[in-house]
């Protein structure tokens, strides 16, 4: 599996958020993207998933060599892209189990049906691994869940849907120390040569449990620096100012998307 993000420019409501992002994620790799608030980390994850709010101005996203930018959200998911969301949406009246079962069924080959009994055991196993309690299957999707439960539920879905590439968008926010360890251990167990991971985080603590191979710093809609684990320690201790100083980055010079002012009047003269 290879996810390739090529010189990606993305806008929302005429404001350019991503300004030329390049990133390659291969199966078996874990990438951490760090950076100050509002630099486009979550936008990157959302645009890969296909959120309709964001508009690709230029660039491309390829999954195994195939461009996905014209594909709808559901197709991207079925192709293997997964986004563990920062704020998972509540869907009242829809049980967690019915939802995950329906999602799992979409991945079945035509003519094949999900073996429900087997899936129940899988669901219960994943739920137990994440210490989510027995009633989870019958609870309405994310409704009344604590912040930590919502995040663990995202990881549970990831476990059951077997994605090729997973973005975990601030999966550590709202988690206490124990829950963070559980999530970290579960995600680490899922690591394989068939799964590429992209972790979006502000803190080192998540990366203590899910050790990345690459650490990227994103500032002003661009990956400005890539390194290894030493980069995390330095960011944790010194923040991002040194990166800005080192690279001569001034704060937030977000370009507005070019706007057409109209056409000049022309007259053809014979």
């Amino acid at each position: 599996m290879v996810l390739e993000i090529k010189d990606l420019f993305v806008s929302v409501e005429e404001t350019m958020i991503l300004q030329g992002v390049n990133l390659i994620v291969k199966g078996g790799e874990t990438h951490a993207i760090m950076g100050p608030n509002g630099t486009g980390k979550s936008t990157l994850a959302s645009i890969c998933m296909g959120h309709p709010k964001y508009k690709i101005v230029s660039g491309d996203i390829l999954l195994d060599g195939e461009s996905i930018i014209d594909k709808p959200v559901d197709e991207r998911s079925r192709m293997g892209i997964f986004l563990a969301m920062q704020n998972p949406t509540e869907v009242p009246g829809v049980t967690n189990f019915d939802f995950v079962k329906a999602a799992k069924q979409t991945r079945m080959e035509e003519g094949k049906h999900l073996r429900v009994g087997k899936f129940i055991l899988e669901f219960e196993g994943a739920s137990k691994d994440l210490k989510m309690g027995k009633g989870l299957a019958h609870r309405f999707l994310n409704q009344g869940f604590s912040g930590g439960e919502k995040k663990r539920n995202e990881v549970l879905q990831m476990k059951l849907l077997n994605p090729k590439v997973a973005f975990l968008d601030e999966i550590d926010s709202g988690l206490d120390v124990d829950a963070l360890r559980i999530v970290g251990e579960n995600v680490t167990k899922m690591k394989s040569k068939d799964l590429g991971l992209v972790l979006i985080t502000h803190y080192q603590r998540l990366l203590d449990y899910i050790v990345p191979d690459f650490v990227h710093v994103m500032i002003n809609g661009k990956i400005v620096k890539t390194g290894g684990l030493d980069l995390i320690t330095k960011i944790d201790q010194q923040g991002y100012d040194w990166v800005k100083t080192e690279l001569g980055i001034t704060d937030f010079d977000r370009r507005k998307e070019p706007v057409s002012l109209g056409f000049c009047a022309t007259k053809s003269i014979k």
Binding site: D74, S77, R78, F82, T89, A103, T106
Partner: peptide
Amino acid sequence: EEQLYYLLSRGLSE
């Protein structure tokens, strides 16, 4: 729309 997006993001058709 956000509920719809969430469900789509897990592979369900519209």
